[in-house]
């Protein structure tokens, strides 16, 4: 456990000093900060536009950070030979991989917390103090965090055996697929008139590609007239789904990394 924590802490230390991540974070923070001023450009209600923009910026910035952070994780350690000094110590490969993953999760937590902090300030300045409104708004970053942990697990899984560039497209592609097309595939499965082949493809995609769309809970937050039934239960369910997927990805990553020549 000590080893996992040490590696995680070192990964966090490195991540918060990586220029590329800091630039992405800075862009996200700047956009969140200026978002209240951009609401006037839209014909829709200012509150709706502001909430939509703020949450959209956090989600997109976090996704880019999660992918950039994890695609280089293992290849960089091998290229710089840091992995050799670590694995020659009493550190098992699974401990190394878990340490890297938890380091990525910690880094995401720190960076997303910063963006969320700026979001709260921007929202407060624009809307005035509204505890209930803020509380509702903050549900989304929490779910986005689970979503990003899942995305980080995908990035780390692929980084155990593919190059960073390929990983970037694979992880990014799966994120887009899981965010935008999962509902389509689920509709296809539910449709009794859908052809058998289409249902089969939909089943395979549903199992392999994690459904990132579950965590896109911004719709009821942006549009308060939309209500989620059994909201708390639903959140617990999708969190459990995320944790199960993350667990499966980490186990698969460990199995591959355990036999990998480094």
């Amino acid at each position: 456990m000590k080893q996992i924590w040490s590696i995680a802490a070192t990964t966090l230390g490195e991540a918060i000093r990586r220029r590329v991540l800091l630039v992405i974070l800075l862009v996200g923070v700047v956009f969140i900060a200026i978002a209240p001023g951009l609401g006037v450009l839209s014909a829709r209600s200012e509150t709706t536009v502001l909430r939509s923009m703020l949450l959209g910026i956090i989600q997109m910035t976090s996704a880019v950070i999660a992918v950039v952070l994890t695609v280089y994780m293992i290849p960089n350690e091998i290229e710089r030979r840091t992995i050799y000094t670590i694995l020659s110590k009493p550190v098992q490969r699974w401990q190394f991989l878990l340490g890297k993953y938890f380091g990525a999760v910690l880094s995401l937590a720190v960076m997303m917390a910063l963006m969320t902090g700026v979001l709260c300030i921007a929202y407060w300045i624009q809307q005035g103090y509204n505890a209930q409104g803020l509380q509702d708004l903050l549900k989304a970053p929490v779910m986005f965090f689970v979503q990003m942990c899942l995305l980080a697990a995908i990035g780390l899984f692929f980084s155990t055996f593919v190059s960073p560039l390929v990983n970037f497209f694979l992880s990014g592609g799966l994120y887009l697929l899981g965010s935008t097309f999962s509902l389509l595939f689920q509709d296809m499965l539910a449709n009794p008139n859908a052809p058998g082949v289409a249902k089969m493809i939909a089943t395979v995609v549903n199992v392999i590609v994690p459904n990132f769309a579950y965590y896109n809970i911004q719709n009821p937050i942006i549009n308060p007239q939309v209500v989620i039934q059994d909201e708390f239960q639903n959140y617990v369910k999708i969190m459990a789904y995320g944790v199960a997927y993350i667990g499966a990805l980490l186990v698969a990553g460990i199995l591959i990394f355990d036999r990998r020549e480094v």
Binding site: T10, G13, E14, R80, T82, T85, S88, P90
Partner: peptide
């Protein structure tokens, strides 16, 4: 063997360490 790793050590060629440390 992981227990042997407690009593051995390794200095790689051109080692790199986390530079911020």
């Amino acid at each position: 063997d992981i227990n042997t790793h407690r009593i051995i050590s390794y200095l790689p060629e051109k080692p790199y360490y986390y530079e911020y440390m």
